[in-house]
């Protein structure tokens, strides 16, 4: 059984939406970081799907989507590192990982 491109894209969009929902609604900062990672991985899924679909296109270099996936993975790792260090700095001063309690800046 082969999965169609359209199926993969819809699945990827669904996972992406789960990530966005998590970022917007959860209050635990660790869970928000996890949701951000889910979003990037959902994008990777659609890249892989495109990579499979492009294999039949003889005019293009088929390695394009794979290269893109590797780049996204690298960026996701760097982003997690920066995010966790900011989170650590926040936790040291605020003693909380609840986004709702961090509310000094308003207006």
């Amino acid at each position: 059984m082969t999965l169609s491109l359209s199926f993969c894209l819809h699945l990827s969009a669904a996972i992406f939406s789960i990530g966005v929902y998590g970022v917007l609604t959860r209050s635990n900062l660790i869970v928000i970081l996890m949701s951000l990672e889910i979003m990037l991985n959902a994008v990777n899924l659609s890249l892989v799907a495109f990579g499979r679909a492009f294999l039949t296109d003889l005019t293009r270099d088929p390695s394009g989507p794979q290269v893109f996936v590797i780049m996204v993975l690298a960026v996701a790792a760097a982003e997690a590192a920066v995010g966790l260090s900011i989170l650590l700095a926040v936790y040291r001063k605020w003693r909380t990982t609840n986004a709702g309690e961090i509310d000094l800046l308003k207006g």
Binding site: L29, I86, L87, A89, V90, K93, W94, I102, D103, L104, L105
Partner: peptide, 10 residues
């Protein structure tokens, strides 16, 4: 060391 800076960055 500043709470506001941490919050803004987060």
């Amino acid at each position: 060391e500043e709470k506001r800076s941490n919050e803004g960055a987060l």
